[in-house]
């Protein structure tokens, strides 16, 4: 005999699953998810393989400059984001600033994280035109959106006793922050910034396609000119960049965390 509560749980799960399935079927109908389209698309696979492969190796040296530009864009945005995330995080911490400052800052950070980067890029392009500067602004903003919140949370979790004892010795507000707070939050900020660098490299490829230049622009242009094997070459370049950034960011993060433990 199944216990009552277990049966109720089973029923609830079945209802949840049924709801999910029903919603999926409705969504699939809206999105024209039909086997015919799938079959028709998959039928083109051999032709695609011929057009996209082999990569246009001759274009390899044309990819170096865009790749470096994408890397520089992501790096500059990450550094800028990390530098600005600390003051923004201070303004988002309840134990540092009054509510009338913390609340709007938190709302702005939340709104920033909710909007896709591409959409933010569009606004920066309206202001600054196409080019790497707009891309850097979009990426720096989204870095601040994430890092600023994490710094704010870290400051709110920081050990109050350290701050209190510094205050008791007569330290000024900025000295308390410099010697009490900064050492507590800096390691986690650096680790998160390294993670954000990994994310920013991926995003800067995407933003490039809309107008920030670099390898993303190269991919989009090759696709637009129907030079599919050149696009494959550019994509290969972006894969190398992304894997390299992931490895470097992961290694540095691991070393940082090991340093913190010893």
């Amino acid at each position: 005999m199944v216990p009552y509560s277990a049966r109720r749980q089973l029923v609830r799960r079945a209802v949840g699953f049924g709801l999910w399935l029903g919603l999926f079927l409705a969504a699939a109908a809206l999105c024209d998810l039909s086997p015919e389209i799938l079959k028709q698309g998959l039928g083109k696979a051999p032709q695609f393989a011929r057009e996209f492969f082999p990569p246009l190796w001759a274009a390899a040296d044309e990819m170096v400059e865009p790749l470096l530009s994408t890397l520089a864009l992501a790096s500059a945005a990450s550094l800028l984001g990390m530098l600005l995330a600390f003051p923004v995080g201070l303004a988002a911490a309840a134990n540092i600033v009054p509510v009338w400052l913390r609340l709007p800052v938190r709302i702005l950070l939340g709104a920033e994280r909710a909007l896709p980067e591409i959409l933010q890029l569009l606004f920066f392009v309206v202001a600054f035109g196409l080019g790497p500067f707009s891309g850097m602004c979009a990426l720096a903003f989204s870095s601040i959106g994430m890092l600023g919140k994490l710094v704010g949370d870290a400051i709110e979790d920081a050990d109050d006793k350290v701050l209190e004892s510094l205050k008791a010795t007569g330290a000024s507000f900025w000295q308390v922050i410099r010697y009490g707070l900064l050492p507590q939050v800096l390691p986690s900020l650096a680790a998160n910034a390294l993670f954000r660098f990994d994310v920013n490299v991926r995003s800067s490829v995407v933003l490039g396609a809309i107008g920030a230049g670099g390898i993303g622009a190269e991919i989009a242009r090759s696709m637009g000119m129907l030079q599919y094997n050149r696009a494959t070459m550019a994509v290969l370049g972006s894969l190398i960049l992304i894997y390299a950034a992931e490895t470097v960011s992961g290694q540095l993060r691991r070393r940082l965390l090991e340093d913190g433990r010893s």
Binding site: V205, G216, I219, A220, V235, L239, E246
Partner: peptide, 8 residues
């Protein structure tokens, strides 16, 4: 799949 840009 994670590394390939979604727009591509």
């Amino acid at each position: 799949e994670r590394a390939l840009s979604s727009f591509f």
